[in-house]
Computed example of a mutant assay.
Amino acid sequence: MVRAIEWVDAGADSHIRLIDQTLLPASETFLEISSVEQLIEAIQSLAVRGAPALGAAGGYGVALALLEGARHEWTETELDTAIDAVALARPTAVNLAWGARRVAAVRAEGFDRVLAEAHAIATEDERANRELSRLGADWLLERVGHRPLRAVTHCNTGALATTAWGTAYGILHELHDRGMLELVYVDETRPLLQGTRLTSWELHHDGIPHLVEVDGAAASTILRGLVDFAVIGADRITADGDTANKVGSVALALACARRGIPFVVAAPYSTIDVATATGDLIEIEERGDHEVLNFGGLPVATPGVRAFNPAFDVTPHDLISAIVTERGVVEPAATEQPLFAPDVAVADH
């Protein structure tokens, strides 16, 4: 199984190793990250991405900051600034800041304790992913039917987006392992093609039958009855169950609602942000024009034209059939608000 992020233990030269996802599938290249600045660049360039993987990056980023601070004799203020810079490198995904804050909270206990806490995030994520995959597969088979199912998914939620196994992808993998997955339609996921480049790459390596489709075909694929359910991940889930995910996700939810089939969101419990009441309050990251106006390094628009490039959209909770975490399955459209109570979840954030 591919590891999107790992800690390389080499004494004073310890560092983070990332697979550079911007180069997949053409090249499987690893980045050796030894400074906070390099980590932030990797996060912002999407060399590492996906909410759970960013949670691990946040945690390991604190360990990296402590090592770099020791080399350069940073003051406590300088160390705080470096940790904050990691935590805030991308604004929409809650797991990045959560991972950094969780590990930073134990830094007074020393480097070994910090590294152990960062490792714990990675270990817990894989365990959570496997459990939510089991729960999600059970839920789908109970409601759709105990037969091989056809699915559509958006963006990438596999091992590349997590510390191992995957979230929404993990549910697909679980169904496949049970002999209950017939076919997956993979949205290309414009403008950076995470579906084409990453999800298809993982499905191919795992031997899971799939077809890549342009984003504009997804709603029609659903309405034509070609799939039995849609499953996506999430970068943030609010207290009422609204979810932020890669832009284009809400179109699948609308089509599923019209067709009357399940629209499922899968994410570790750490993705739930009980401090944000609704999706209207989520800050949506907007990225550069070049991602939309260029393709394969070549301009595809008239010179001087500008682009609107939100990285995420928000799916209202009443369009979501199920939110699956390692703690269980909730059905937002049929649940009284607030869906996630602060007194239950604050300790986990």
Rank of each mutant, 00 (worst) to 15 (best):
A82W: 11
A277R: 12
R258D: 12
A151P: 00
R197E: 00
P52C: 05
P303R: 06
L24I: 09
S14H: 10
D318S: 07
H154N: 03
P332Y: 06
R130A: 03
A277M: 13
D9Y: 11
S35Q: 00
A255R: 09
F308A: 12
S35G: 09
F229S: 09
W74E: 14
V346Q: 14
G195A: 00
Y269Q: 12
A93E: 01
A239R: 01
L24Y: 06
G296F: 00
L298C: 11
R190T: 11
A347S: 10
V324K: 01
A56I: 09
V300Q: 12
D313W: 01
D125H: 00
I237D: 04
V300N: 07
P299N: 08
L67H: 15
G145Y: 04
F263C: 10
L79V: 07
C256N: 00
A267Q: 02
V227Y: 09
G99S: 07
G279Q: 11
A275H: 15
D242I: 03
P303C: 04
F312M: 04
S200Y: 10
W201C: 01
D13G: 04
T77D: 15
I237T: 05
N95I: 00
R101T: 03
L319A: 04
L281K: 00
P303S: 00
T196Y: 12
A277E: 15
I323Q: 01
R190Q: 13
W7C: 12
A253S: 01
V300A: 05
Q337I: 15
R287D: 04
W98Y: 11
A333N: 01
G179N: 07
L226T: 14
A87Y: 02
V36S: 10
G99C: 05
E32Y: 15
P91L: 09
D215L: 00
V48D: 05
H15T: 02
V329L: 13
G248K: 14
D273T: 01
A12I: 14
D348S: 13
G296E: 04
A26F: 15
R147K: 08
A307K: 02
A345S: 13
D206S: 03
A322S: 00
A230R: 01
D215R: 02
F340L: 03
V265F: 07
E41P: 12
I272Q: 07
A168P: 02
A345L: 14
I16K: 14
A257M: 15
T77K: 15
E109K: 10
E68V: 07
G136D: 03
D343A: 10
V36H: 02
T243D: 08
A108K: 12
G166W: 03
V103S: 00
G195E: 00
H205I: 08
H119F: 13
T123N: 12
G99R: 02
H349Y: 14
